[in-house]
Simulated scan of single mutants.
Amino acid sequence: MTEHTLMGKNLLVAGGAKNLGGLIARQAAEAGANVAIHYNSEPSRADAEATLAAVQHAGGTGVVLQGDLTVPANVARLFADAEAALGTIDVAVNTVGKVLRKPIVETTEDEYDEMFDVNAKAAYFFLREAGTRLADGGRIITIVTSLLGAFTDGYSTYAGGKSPVEHFTRAAAKEFAGRGISVTAVAPGPMDTPFFYGQETPERVEFHKSQAMGGRLTRIEDIAPIVRFLATEGWWITGQTIFANGGYTTR
C-alpha cells in the first residue's frame, strides 16, 4: 500500500460478520475496498451474509469464509481462500475474541485452554499468515482489550489471553518492517455489544459506564474509524497498543 486509502484495496476481517467486525467490513467497502468476511460457526452465518450484502451494495467485491481460527491450518486456509476470491490481501484485521468473567478458583482447565486458544493462539497464527501473505506495505490490526491496563477481578483468562498479543504485535512489527508492513493492536474499553452484557450484572454495567466520558460504554462506532485510520493515514504507527476507551483506564 503506497497510497493511504482503502480504495481498491483487499481487506480480510476475521470475526467480520457482526458487531465491530461487521462495521469495519461495511465501512471499508464504503471507502472503496473489497472485503473477505470471516465468521466462526453456523450461528453467525446469517450475519455474515447480511454484511456481505452491505459490502456488495456499497460497490465492493465480497466473500464469506468460515473457519475455527484456533486451528492454524484453518487460518492458513482462510488467507488462501481470501486471496483466491479477492487477490493479494492488503489489510488484515482480527476482531476475534472470547470474553469470560469468572474467579480464578472456579475456572476449569478447559475454560483456560479455550480462552487462550481463542484470544492468543488464533491471534498468533493470524499474524503469522498475514506476515507471510500480505502485500508489501500492508497493515495488520488486532483488537485486544483495555483490561490490559486495568487492575480488577474476574477477567484473568480474558485479559490474560489478550495480553500476549501485545508482545506478538511488537515482534511482528519488527519482523515485518522490512516489507513496510505496520502491525498494531487496538484496545477498546468495555463495548456496548452482547458479548459484554452476558458477563456483567446491571450494577457493574453502570460502574463501567461511569468510568468513561459521557457516562457510557465504548461503542463500535468509536473503534471502527481508528481501525480505518491505522489502515490508511495512520500507517506510521506500528508495534503499538492503542487504548481507545474514553478515559476508562490507562497505564
Rank of each mutant, 00 (worst) to 15 (best):
H4K: 15
L6Y: 06
L6P: 05
L11T: 02
L11V: 04
K18W: 06
N19F: 01
L20E: 08
I24A: 02
R26C: 05
G32K: 13
A33D: 09
V35K: 05
V35L: 05
A36Y: 04
A36M: 04
I37E: 10
N40I: 05
R45Q: 09
A50I: 01
L52D: 00
H57S: 15
H57K: 15
T61V: 12
V64N: 08
Q66A: 14
Q66Y: 02
Q66E: 12
G67D: 04
G67T: 04
G67A: 06
N74V: 12
D81E: 15
D81V: 02
A84F: 04
T88Q: 14
D90R: 06
V93P: 03
T95R: 03
L100I: 04
R101S: 09
K102V: 06
E106K: 15
E109K: 12
E109D: 13
M115N: 09
V118S: 02
A120E: 01
Y124E: 01
L127A: 08
R133H: 12
G137A: 09
I140T: 10
T142W: 00
T142E: 06
T142F: 00
T145E: 01
T145G: 00
L147M: 14
L148I: 09
L148H: 11
G149C: 08
F151V: 12
F151I: 11
F151M: 11
T152H: 08
D153K: 13
D153G: 10
Y155P: 00
S156K: 05
S156Q: 11
T157I: 15
A159R: 06
G160Q: 06
G161H: 10
K162W: 06
E166T: 03
H167Q: 13
F168I: 01
A173Y: 07
K174I: 13
E175P: 04
F176Y: 13
A177I: 07
G180P: 10
I181Y: 04
T184V: 13
T184S: 13
P190R: 12
M191Y: 07
F195I: 08
F196D: 00
G198Q: 11
G198H: 10
G198V: 10
G198N: 10
Q199K: 07
R204W: 14
V205F: 05
F207D: 10
F207S: 08
A212V: 03
A212Y: 06
G214E: 07
G215Q: 09
R216I: 04
I220Y: 01
I223Y: 05
P225R: 12
V227L: 03
R228K: 14
L230F: 11
A231R: 06
T232E: 13
T232D: 09
G234F: 10
G234I: 07
W236S: 14
W236I: 11
I237E: 00
G239A: 09
G239N: 09
T241M: 04
T241P: 01
T241Y: 02
I242Q: 09
G247A: 12
T250L: 13
T250V: 12
